[in-house]
Design a protein around this nucleic acid. Structure first.
Lengths: 193, 193
DNA sequence: AGAATTAGACTAACCGTTTAGTCTAACTTT
DNA sequence: AAAGTTAGACTAAACGGTTAGTCTAATTCT
């Protein structure tokens, strides 16, 4: 990939994440990327297509470093996945912002994205395996159970701006470590009886 | 409040919720409200002020029917609050959408909104009371614990479009009832040991 | 040589905002 | 009661800034 195209994608990611699709400005992207506006239209045929490219890029990164499940037990694996998820959200704030904005508006892309289900299906699969082996407690509605767990992980990051103040002045790394501990606790209390 | 102004606010709520601030169109609002565009500027001095008015309206409704805590125990009260929260989110999808979009972009209003902390402080207060009376298990980081609980409740609604498919073809009312059951379970397993 | 990139002027459409004025019902004056 | 006045609700039409997208001709990588 050419240097300019890469810079455009990087900058566009930030701009779309911060302003949303409608708030984002092509002129601003080209300026911040240090690139002529025409170059954007040389590589992408429209703002919409640029957005799609940004999203696809993002999901590629999000799902590429997929998790190696090597824990000795389902419990270990589940906790490992959760921590991986937390780290990922921590290090990819743009991912969260763009996701939320694009889900709130129903941008076309999100109907097609199969990546969207990645985390759900991973956790769901592990949980159901655990139920089979008898290692996990059986609940009436596993899908709702998993959704709730994912929500417990995700919410802090998606509403970071509004929520962060409840944690006081500690560093973000400390918050992340607290988050992991809380989620470990929740999982062991909920998944295993 | 005049008939026109009310219609404008109603319509604007929908438009802002669906398209976000930048995506919303004054032309479209006036058309849908069956009102001349200039009337919007007669009642509100700008798009921004219209948005603010919509938000304030929304929060007034959101926090007006506040919860009577009359359960015999903290456990009952906590579950009651959660169910109230679930019902509220279920019946006010626009609230969720507008919240998410406005949090994702950092619209000014949200820095000032004290309503924003309403649910957090309610649940947090109840939990801490429970810890004092010894009815609730003590956790290391109550704020993170409460945030996780709220996230578990909220996530389904904020990402409804993307998540709903995991529940199959059952009616929305059934999903809500499942959600309540799951959250009752989670609370009793997590808050009380 | 061919792909990538620049400069910057240009357009067409869109969209928030303004202006100047209408309509109506109530209220006041004569 | 007729005439004058006011205030609030509302409208038609235009104004003017903004912005996605284009065009062209020249230049620089690889």
């Amino acid at each position: 990939m050419s240097q300019g195209k890469e810079k455009i994608l990087q900058t566009a990611l930030q701009e779309f994440a911060e302003k949303g699709f409608d708030g984002a400005r092509i002129d601003y992207i080209s300026k911040m990327a240090g690139v002529n506006k025409a170059l954007i239209y040389y590589h992408f045929k429209s703002k919409e297509e640029l957005f799609t490219a940004v999203i696809n890029d993002l999901f590629e990164q999000a799902t590429s470093g997929s998790i190696e499940l090597k824990g000795p037990s389902i419990q270990e694996n589940l906790i490992q996945v959760m921590e991986h998820f937390i780290d990922f959200l921590h290090h990819n704030p743009y991912f969260v912002k763009i996701m939320d904005q694009s889900v709130a508006q129903d941008r076309d892309i999100f109907q097609q994205l199969h990546h969207q289900n990645f985390f759900f299906e991973t956790v769901m699969g592990m949980y159901q395996l655990g139920v089979q082996t008898g290692e996990c407690r059986k609940v009436d509605h596993p899908e709702d159970f998993v959704v709730s767990l994912l929500g417990a992980v995700y919410f802090y990051f998606s509403h970071h701006k509004a929520i962060r103040k409840f944690y006081g002045t500690i560093s973000e790394e400390e918050v992340i470590s607290i988050r992991k501990k809380t989620m470990r606790d929740m999982i062991s209390r909920l998944v295993f009886s």
